[in-house]
Design a protein around this nucleic acid. Structure first.
Length: 429
RNA sequence: GUGGCCGUAGCUCAGUUGGUUAGAGCGCCAGGUUGUGAUCCUGGAUGUCGGGGGUUCGAAUCCCCUCGGCCACCCCA
């Protein structure tokens, strides 16, 4: 027992950068995930469930030079001394599972998962955020790139979002990528003194990351940097052309941004990012991905191409709010049982109604009828079923519509379920 | 990791140049005669003013530390 003089209050709160999502807000999450699942299912993608933590090496394959690997991972040693890490993004685990189970290709899966990164939180950025995503592994066909991009574009559209733009780029073949990185590094080294100091540090470690720097000094140097589009081989050009043609054919507006790099090292060929024009914060990337034709091999599998995307649930919901779309009504049961005879009848009737397929709730603690009716109203139920001494004596119950009018009436106990079904509509179970 | 702003009831916020038992709206709870919600009326509970320390006769108000939130950089979803 705390001393009266000691400060009270909860000793614990959700860790920095994390949050609880409570009802009714969580309804939006349910609905968003259900919508995504629907889109993915219809495109032939199956749900993949995989562990939230992996050997740290699985994620390290994202690139030793990336921030996500270098300083943002939640890694730890378990009691057996294994070096593990909480998933910082979705793709690596999927690829690991692919290598482990060698399914028939193309392997098309979707997922919904938390992702953990040790960063300073701000608007639209959390230490635990959540992503939905898909991966399609085993085919180099550029039309698969188009399918994946179209899937995400269709998801945004299904939510009602309109202020979403798509930028695409290509990193070319793995060889192109290496050659281009070298060319960029050469260029940057030639102008090392003119670069922003922060960016200058990255030149050796990760020259491509410098390309999308927003720093003014660096921008000057970048103006004369070589473009990836000039150093692609024929295969890469053909791939990119086919992807763009597919997007055009499907009416998916997009722009080519040759400086688009994205944070993960494994990308080859197609790279894309969806941005919201409705978010005021700097965190406007609401989904992105690309092709990773070397990653399966890096995780110990045979040379196998792959492509996928991840999309951030928090940011998507922020965008929906900003655009005023995808509002989800609060959950509601069909029936609320009010019992002022002690509660046994409410106990039995709610379960009976649920067994009959109806949504039913009730009040507890033997509260007054007024209080129970208040709770009934708050529950969102369409009707209240009232049980009092009179009803018990007559072996009846009272059915009272709570919205949309209609008079209450007494119904024989045996007829409750059919009566409610009729009242609630023909589409009821 | 760097910098700026902020932290008062469950929620949104007032709190005058530091001055008596810290307020409002919403929400919650209970009443408004004997069994009926959403409207209306009345009443009530809840905060040791994020936490700790300091200055002062006196601190929600000033100072320091700390925790947390927000915003920008960075990075990304």
């Amino acid at each position: 027992m705390p001393e009266p003089s000691e400060p009270t209050g909860p000793p614990f709160a959700a860790p920095i950068g994390t949050r609880d999502v409570l009802p009714p807000d969580s309804r939006r999450w349910e609905a968003l995930v259900a919508r995504f699942a629907g889109e993915a299912d219809r495109a032939g993608y199956g749900l993949l469930l995989s562990p939230l933590f992996e050997s740290v090496g699985v994620f390290a394959r994202m690139g030793e030079g990336t921030d996500v690997v270098r300083k943002e991972m939640y890694d730890f040693a378990d009691k057996g001394g294994r070096h593990l890490a909480l998933r910082p993004e979705g793709t690596a685990s999927v690829v690991r599972a692919f290598v482990e189970h060698h399914p028939v290709v193309p392997w098309k899966v979707w997922y919904v998962t938390p992702a953990f990164r040790y960063e300073r939180p701000q608007a639209g950025r959390y230490r635990q955020h959540h992503q939905v995503g898909v991966e399609a592994i085993g085919s180099p066909d550029p039309d698969l790139d188009v399918e994946v991009i179209a899937l995400l574009a269709g998801f945004y559209r299904a939510l009602g979002l309109e202020q979403v733009s798509l930028v695409v780029n290509t990193m070319g073949t793995p060889a192109d990528r290496v050659a281009y990185a070298a060319a960029v590094a050469d260029h940057l080294r030639a102008h090392l003194g003119d670069l922003d100091p922060e960016d200058a540090e990255k030149v050796d470690r990760h020259p491509l990351r410098v390309l999308d720097s927003k720093r003014r000094a660096t921008q000057q140097v970048l103006a004369t940097a070589p473009s990836i589009l000039d150093s692609l081989d024929d295969v890469a050009v053909a791939h990119f052309e086919r992807v763009r043609a597919g997007l055009v054919a499907l009416g998916i507006a997009h722009e080519v941004e040759p400086r688009l790099v994205r944070g993960l090292d494994y990308y080859t060929h197609t790279l894309f990012e969806f941005r919201s024009g409705a978010l005021s914060s700097a965190q406007n990337a609401i989904g992105g991905g690309g092709r990773y034709d070397g990653l399966v091999e890096a995780l110990g599998g045979p040379p196998t191409p792959g492509i996928g995307f991840g999309a951030g649930i928090e940011r998507i919901l922020l965008t929906c709010e900003a655009e005023g779309v995808f509002s989800v009504p609060p959950g509601a049961v069909d029936v609320f049982v009010v019992d002022v005879t002690g509660g046994e009848r409410a106990r039995d009737l709610t379960v009976a109604l649920r067994r009959a397929g109806l949504g039913a709730s009730r009040a507890f603690d033997a509260r007054s009828m007024k209080a129970q009716m208040k709770a009934a109203d708050r529950s969102g139920a369409a009707v209240a079923v009232i049980v009092g001494p009179d009803e018990v004596a007559a072996d009846e119950i009272t059915v009272r519509p709570l919205r949309g009018g209609g008079d209450q009436q007494r119904v024989a106990s045996a007829d409750v379920v059919p009566h409610l079904r009729a009242l609630l509509g023909e589409d009821r179970p």
